[in-house]
Design a protein around this nucleic acid. Structure first.
Lengths: 153, 153
DNA sequence: ATTTTAGTTCTGTAAATTATGAACTAATGA
DNA sequence: TCATTAGTTCATAATTTACAGAACTAAAAT
């Protein structure tokens, strides 16, 4: 596995981005590598060697990504290796998860309004606005996806 | 500052949510407290004492939240204390920042497509879909906000 | 003038996270 | 049957983070 300078730096930039999204450094680099490599499917050893991370870190990263549904693998008969690749079909699911996350936030904010006893209800209007907006977003999301699909048909 | 059990647990739940968004624990608790407390404006000492965090952690948290635009403070003449409160007017800005974040991801993904040389271009279509969807989302967001505003007028 | 207030900054450290390397396992191949 | 491959697991090392506590500062109050 040989990578261009651009590929290497993209792995790092993407890696840092994903670290900020809560992934551990090595995990984020593995995702980056699978994303930018010329070959879409890589083996355990290729990943470990190309990124210079230990076998244990590689094992841990791959299992983490398998469990969270970010990657998958194929095998070929007469070849014991697994070939790992990004599960690129699932960006919709990941997007849905982000939306779920916003839903949870919204439920927390609704509880906040119930629980706190503000003298002046003016303080509640902005929060109500945000809650309302999140509800609206969630409701409109299916339509938005639909329209996007039509727009490119 | 006395809080109900519900308020306390909401602070923790919101705190954990915000930890997952990359905030440090103490910072996340300060946001939570300012969100759920009956009085919308609290002093340094009230925050420190209510949450049982040290003055240094309180100072650090408040400055962090001031710098990132999450809170602000008022003062009253003849009173040296600052009264901190959530900058609730700015959820639009925060939302805009999230969108910026997605924009950055999108720019990375576009570079990925340019840089990697996949034998079979079929591997690029899913990624192109996602890129296209993110572009669409970004473009439609102002309209969506607009429609939401009209819907509640 | 000095004491109090309202914080800030600095140093040390406990705890958590992340990764390494070595030992291990289970399956395959020679 | 023995060696090799393709990983996994475990103990531990290194790094990072998050916070406490004490010393400090600048303005205001007495």
């Amino acid at each position: 596995m040989t990578l261009s300078e651009e590929q290497r730096s993209l792995i790092e930039e993407f890696g840092i981005y994903q670290e900020n999204n809560g992934f551990q450094p090595a995990v984020a680099r593995v995702m980056g590598l699978l994303l930018v490599s010329d070959r879409p499917e890589l083996t355990f050893d290729e990943i470990s060697e190309t990124l210079s991370i230990s076998k244990s870190a590689t094992s841990n990263s791959l299992n983490m990504l398998l469990n969270t549904g970010h990657i998958e693998y194929t095998t070929f008969s007469g070849d014991r290796k697994r070939y790992f690749r990004i599960k690129s079909s699932n960006w919709r699911e990941l997007f849905a998860k982000k939306m779920e996350d916003l839903s949870y936030l919204n439920s927390l904010l609704k509880r906040v309004l119930e629980v706190r006893k503000r003298e002046n209800p003016i303080y509640d209007t902005k929060l109500n606005d945000f809650i309302s907006f999140l509800d609206y977003m969630k409701a409109q999301m299916p339509r938005l996806i639909d329209e996007w699909e039509k727009s490119r048909a």
